[in-house]
């Protein structure tokens, strides 16, 4: 998914221009809706504060992605290797996503503390699902002709996994990972809202309570940029690793 950057920029610019204009035409107080220019000024002027908190949230997200990857790859492989296991685990996998993250966030904070650990787990809970499902789907979509070929070659399951199924599923894996990283910020921020001492989510809650709406928006801008950055990074890795497409 590669939108022409020109079009994306034009759309963003039009929305911002309309927003800026309406803020100037209808004089709203800044604590209700600040104009984009004010948000931009805050986002730059408070950069040290924002950066320090973004670092915390960023590390939580990256660690969350790491944890999610470990769980997802293990789970998808196990479910692919064993049909009964797949049938046994599938309902729990779905259930894990049916429960709203908000509902378990306070529990995770109780279990894992106010520090980053609970946010890492929260992010991982959200991210692992699309990766697991895509990867499993990828494994299963392998052309039966190749399965026969590897069967005749007498390849062990480990070798089939390494030489056939894993590369075959790699594009699916990346599709899942892209969905995963784009929602990763949600998990971390919700975790920070429920209870934390640092992070962009923490900053937003603090600023919101003081009606510093421009700072809330500035934090959102930083968060969005982090999300886009992660997405771009995954896209870069995909182009490198899935070099045959």
């Amino acid at each position: 998914m590669k939108a022409a950057p020109g079009i994306a920029l034009a759309v963003a610019f039009s929305i911002l221009a309309a927003w800026e204009a309406s803020c100037r035409l209808i004089p709203l107080p800044d604590f209700i809706l600040p104009p984009p220019s004010a948000i931009a000024v805050t986002a730059v002027a408070r950069a040290p504060l924002l950066a320090a908190n973004a670092m915390v949230t960023g590390l939580e997200i990256v660690a969350g992605i790491g944890l999610a990857l470990a769980v997802a790859v293990a789970l998808a492989t196990a479910m692919f290797a064993s049909r009964p296991l797949e049938r046994a685990l599938a309902p729990f996998l779905i259930a894990s996503q049916a429960v709203p993250v908000f509902a378990i966030a306070p529990l995770l904070v109780i279990w894992f503390g106010y520090g980053p650990a609970s946010k890492v787990v929260m992010a991982a809970v959200i991210i692992f699902f699309p990766i697991t499902v895509s990867l499993l789907e990828g494994f299963k979509s392998c052309d039966p002709g190749y399965r026969i070929l590897f069967r005749l070659m007498g390849a062990s399951f480990g070798r089939r996994l390494r030489y056939l199924y894993w590369p075959w599923a790699l594009p699916y894996f990346f599709a899942g990972l892209k969905v995963g990283v784009s929602v990763a910020t949600i998990g971390a921020v919700i975790g920070e809202w429920v209870g934390s001492q640092a992070g962009l989510g923490y900053l937003m809650i603090q600023a919101n309570a003081r009606l510093q709406v421009d700072l809330v928006f500035a934090a959102i801008v930083w968060l969005s940029l982090m999300g886009v950055g992660l997405w771009a990074l995954v896209g870069l890795l995909e182009r490198r690793w899935v070099y045959w497409k």
């Binding site: 052309d143 002709g145 190749y146 026969i148 070929l149 069967r151 005749l152 007498g154 030489y163 056939l164 590369p167 070099y243 045959w244 497409k245």
Partner: peptide, 16 residues
């Protein structure tokens, strides 16, 4: 399974 090699209409080469 242990005796035969097999070739199909599709080349079944690994694209990677």
């Amino acid at each position: 399974e242990q005796t035969a090699a097999y070739m199909q209409q599709k080349d079944l080469l690994l694209p990677w």
